[in-house]
């Protein structure tokens, strides 16, 4: 099929505009991060007067960025690992067993993700405060509370994506393992999981990203000690006198790990979405 000249040009124009739109903020972030402070205090300049990496040094002492980073790393990693572990068992059940309530479970879990966060923010806040007062377990303003909250945010989509992956693994493999005397757990760990590794990795990255980027609950459920990057960086950017070069440097540093992880695994995300979309 040949492309007419008009089509070719409209393709070029549309793609160029979308590229400019996408790239502009990324360029602002990158170029401003390597500007000396003077450059970001006056009118915007396209290029630094001289490239400087001072912002990457200063940002650690202007605000307790190190503490925010450690909090975010801890909360997001634990939430991701636990969430994926739970999702693996749930997806195994949904993919390999027929049981009463299977449909209800799948639909309910997915639909919780569609509800406004603000709806359960207030009650959850009060539940955590009261549970803490009653039992002595710190949930409000603690990293534990954040981990529990965040892992449920990624669970629905993780389960859904893993069911897609597990469904694509032929049941003949399960049956062969069972003939060899393997129980369900051995089937899961020795047959299904090794085959589904790319899916499991993609889901782990997704769960990590979800926790890493969450703002609403972090802004209510944390205090100075448990503050994550989401809240910390925002405070950084709303100070009276904002050091934009440092804020951009910090934004860049906290973005690189998740962006790299996502882009490396993008085809698995597309595969996961396709599996869901063609049903």
């Amino acid at each position: 099929m040949r492309e007419t000249a008009a089509e070719r040009w409209s393709r070029r124009v549309v793609l160029t505009l979308l590229t400019l739109f996408t790239v502009t903020p990324l360029y602002v972030m990158l170029s401003s991060a390597v500007k000396p402070l003077r450059d970001v205090q006056g009118a915007f300049t396209w290029l630094p007067t001289r490239p400087s990496f001072q912002a990457f040094v200063d940002m650690w002492s202007t605000v307790p960025l190190g503490r925010y980073l450690v909090n975010s790393l801890l909360v997001s990693s634990v939430a991701a690992v636990v969430s994926v572990a739970i999702a693996i068992f749930a997806a195994f059940a949904v993919s390999r067993y027929r049981f009463r309530g299977r449909q209800v479970f799948s639909v309910t879990v997915l639909s919780t993700q569609m509800f406004p966060g603000i709806l359960f923010l207030l009650p959850l806040f009060l539940i955590y405060v009261n549970l803490g007062n009653a039992t002595g377990i710190e949930l409000y303003a603690s990293r534990t509370g954040l981990v529990i909250t965040y892992l449920t945010f990624s669970l629905p989509f993780s389960i859904w994506m893993l069911v897609g992956y597990f469904d694509s693994i032929p049941r003949g493999l399960d049956e062969a393992a069972q003939v060899d005397g393997a129980g369900p757990m051995r089937t899961l760990f020795q047959v299904i999981l090794p085959t589904a590794i790319p899916g499991v990795v993609a889901v782990t990255v997704y769960a990590f990203m979800t926790a890493w980027g969450e703002v609403l609950f972090a802004s209510v459920m944390t205090d100075e000690n448990s503050r994550t990057l989401a809240v910390g960086l925002q405070g950084y950017a709303t100070q009276y006198n904002v050091y934009w070069n440092q804020v951009m440097a910090a934004s860049l540093v906290v973005s690189i790990p998740v962006v790299a992880g996502f882009l490396m695994l993008q085809r698995y995300f597309v595969a996961g979405l396709t599996a869901g979309a063609v049903k």
Partner: peptide, 27 residues
Amino acid sequence: LFLTPYALPVYAAVITWTFIFQRDTGL
């Protein structure tokens, strides 16, 4: 490239836009 904004943590992306929209120092 097109997928990058989706992968960026929301606060990092939006803070950058805040900078772009600054009256005196923004792009």
